[in-house]
Computed example of a mutant assay.
Amino acid sequence: MTTALDTRAGTVPAARTGRRRRAPGWLAAVPLLAFTVLAFGLPALAMLDGAFTVTDQATGATSYSTANLAASLQGAYLTALVGSVKLSALSAVLGALLGLPLAQAVVTSRFRALREAVLTASGVLANFGGVPLAFAFVATLGNAGVLTRHLGLADRGWDLYSFWGLVIVYLYFLIPLMVLTITPALDGLRTQWREAARNNGATTAQYWRHVALPVLAPSLLGGLVLLFGSAFAAYATAAAMVGSAVPLVTLQIADALSGNVLVGQENVALALSLDMVLVAGLVMAVYLPLQRRSARWLA
């Protein structure tokens, strides 16, 4: 009977109290969920609705069809989509190749102030883009830029307003982003691994080939994917620098929305946006498993 009384007097109210205490934790997430639905869910639904909506120019009647998606994968739109993928892939690969040794130099540096300075600068430069970045490069390496005139780059065929010029501009913020991404993984490399490889007669190159790079591979691929997504979504820098000289999907979307090329192509622009979302979804589908695998290795 005592056990029954204790159960009635203590255990059951305690369980009920625990449930009541956990309830406000879920309620606290409701504003965040509501904001997510409003900020991301409604625009996504509007984009889906517009991407599949076709308007008859003669009667004004609307219907659902895949004509906009088909149009977004043809002609100039397909060229722009492929151009964005090429630019993003090349910029991401170069950013990863240049960012890795820089991050390694920072990690192995004995000067703590240098490490903090480089990481702080990388955090600033990784978010420096848009029109200010375009203006800085135009003033420096444009047709009448300071370095262009002093070094005679124009006579050597240099052209900032081209595909390769845009790649160099993108590297300005992709390399710092790679440094920020790969530095925690480099910090996770244990010194015991290097010492064990050295004791077994391995050279530095063999250590990196057989030990460090296989461990860092998920983080490297994850950083590469992240750089690709950042370059793929960039708009303001390319718009301010090259305009329509380099075909990019973000510029095609802006032209279609504003009617610079053809009037009434707003839904095609939404279909192009859906194509970008699908590419970004594929990027995230690759990035998240790599990130989890890297965390297990370096934990």
Results as ranks from 00 to 15, higher is better:
residue 49 D to A: 10
residue 216 L to P: 04
residue 124 V to A: 07
residue 89 A to M: 07
residue 155 D to H: 14
residue 82 V to M: 07
residue 223 G to D: 08
residue 119 L to T: 05
residue 164 W to C: 00
residue 150 H to T: 14
residue 101 P to D: 09
residue 214 P to E: 01
residue 283 V to G: 14
residue 10 G to V: 09
residue 13 P to Q: 08
residue 243 G to N: 01
residue 247 P to N: 02
residue 55 T to P: 07
residue 144 A to S: 09
residue 214 P to I: 02
residue 91 S to T: 14
residue 138 V to Y: 05
residue 99 G to P: 05
residue 248 L to W: 02
residue 244 S to G: 00
residue 63 S to Y: 15
residue 47 M to Q: 09
residue 268 V to Q: 04
residue 285 A to Q: 05
residue 197 A to V: 15
residue 128 F to M: 11
residue 189 L to H: 08
residue 207 Y to H: 11
residue 31 P to A: 11
residue 248 L to S: 01
residue 31 P to T: 12
residue 74 Q to V: 11
residue 294 S to Y: 07
residue 119 L to K: 09
residue 260 N to P: 08
residue 286 V to W: 00
residue 227 L to K: 03
residue 227 L to I: 02
residue 181 T to Q: 12
residue 271 A to G: 04
residue 262 L to R: 14
residue 219 S to P: 02
residue 167 V to L: 11
residue 204 T to R: 13
residue 122 S to Y: 03
residue 178 M to E: 14
residue 203 T to S: 04
residue 254 A to M: 03
residue 112 R to K: 10
residue 130 G to S: 15
residue 247 P to Q: 02
residue 157 G to L: 06
residue 278 L to C: 14
residue 261 V to P: 04
residue 130 G to T: 15
residue 235 Y to N: 02
residue 156 R to Q: 13
residue 154 A to V: 14
residue 41 G to P: 14
residue 159 D to H: 06
residue 10 G to E: 09
residue 78 L to P: 02
residue 288 L to M: 00
residue 158 W to S: 11
residue 8 R to L: 13
residue 218 P to K: 04
residue 67 A to N: 10
residue 162 S to F: 11
residue 22 R to G: 10
residue 205 A to N: 04
residue 185 A to L: 07
residue 137 F to A: 03
residue 115 R to W: 03
residue 227 L to W: 02
residue 115 R to C: 02
residue 291 Q to A: 09
residue 125 L to C: 05
residue 89 A to S: 02
residue 5 L to N: 09
residue 105 A to G: 15
residue 86 K to S: 01
residue 195 E to D: 12
residue 117 A to F: 04
residue 164 W to P: 00
residue 252 Q to K: 13
residue 103 A to D: 11
residue 256 A to S: 12
residue 209 R to M: 11
